[in-house]
């Protein structure tokens, strides 16, 4: 059976109040970028171990252990495949391990960023990175409407099930045909919502002037400075260690 409630929950993950979440979004983005860059400095094992350890304070600050665990679990198969492929082509256990840790490092960096950064902040970041308003705004609107549309989907499916509709019956073609009672109301409702939204935007003078003003201003606090310095130190150490430790040769399989 379908699991509509589970579907909705995925979109309902809330950003909790943590020391990390309170940081300036730019700081969070710089930290994220740093820890994506760090494992890429060199393919050597010490660098990978270092970038893992250096992220521990961030995991604690963002209380993202659960998200990290979940993300790693989700990519387990990929990780295993990577080890096997690397080992088969290089026969170097150390190298394969380094490649895996590099991937793990990057997964952790993303998990921390996604746990501690609200969608609205990501929208603001995009604006700051000079992404056009139309795009950043579409992003925010999409996030705003995902839970609404997810609720619609639940209501549509339960409405049809209550009319004796069974989704999982018959062969493939039959199944595709069976999606019609779900898809059509979904599309029509989404269009209607979109239309009313456009009306509301018009009413609120959206796009009336070239330069909108901005209500939200992010300030840099002490925590931001500390973590920015931390990022600089980590990257510097990474560069030093990276040039001192022996490099692996370029090999057919890397990540």
């Amino acid at each position: 059976m379908l699991d509509p409630m589970g579907m909705v929950e995925i979109f309902r993950t809330q950003v909790g109040e943590t020391p990390y979440s309170r940081l300036n979004p730019s700081t969070k983005f710089i930290l994220f970028a740093s820890f994506i860059a760090l494992p890429l400095i060199s393919a050597s094992l010490p660098i990978q171990i270092f970038s893992l350890i250096a992220q521990v304070p961030l995991i604690i600050l963002s209380r993202s252990e659960r998200r990290v665990k979940r993300s790693l679990k989700a990519s387990l198969l990929f990780i295993v495949v990577l080890v096997v492929l690397n080992y088969l082509t290089t026969h170097s256990l150390e190298f394969s391990l380094a490649m895996v840790l590099r991937l793990v490092s990057m997964i952790i960096a993303s998990a921390i960023f996604m746990t501690g950064t609200s969608p609205a902040e990501i929208g603001d970041l995009l604006t700051k990175l000079k992404v056009p308003l139309q795009i950043t705004f579409s992003f925010v609107i999409a996030l705003r409407f995902i839970p609404v549309l997810a609720d619609d989907v639940v209501m549509i499916i339960t409405s049809q099930v209550s009319r004796g509709y069974e989704l999982e019956r018959g062969g493939f073609l039959e199944k595709v045909k069976r999606l019609i009672p779900i898809l059509i109301p979904m599309i029509i409702i989404a269009i209607r919502r979109g239309h009313q939204l456009a009306e509301a935007l018009e009413t609120k003078a959206f796009g009336a002037i070239e330069r909108r003003s901005s209500y939200v201003v992010y300030e840099y606090g002490r925590g931001d400075w500390i973590l920015l310095i931390y990022a600089i130190i980590v990257i510097t150490i990474g560069l030093v260690v990276g040039t001192l430790t022996p490099q692996f040769q370029l090999l057919p399989f890397r990540c």
Binding site: A120, V140, I141, L197, A205, Y215, V216
Partner: peptide, 26 residues
């Protein structure tokens, strides 16, 4: 339908939205 006219993710930002569009100072 309130669901179809709210465009932002937080209450204060929602109220600010129209004002930003008018270009009012912060």
């Amino acid at each position: 339908n309130p669901d179809n006219q709210i465009v932002t993710l937080r209450v204060d930002r929602e109220i600010a939205f129209g004002l930003e569009n008018l270009g009012l100072p912060r």
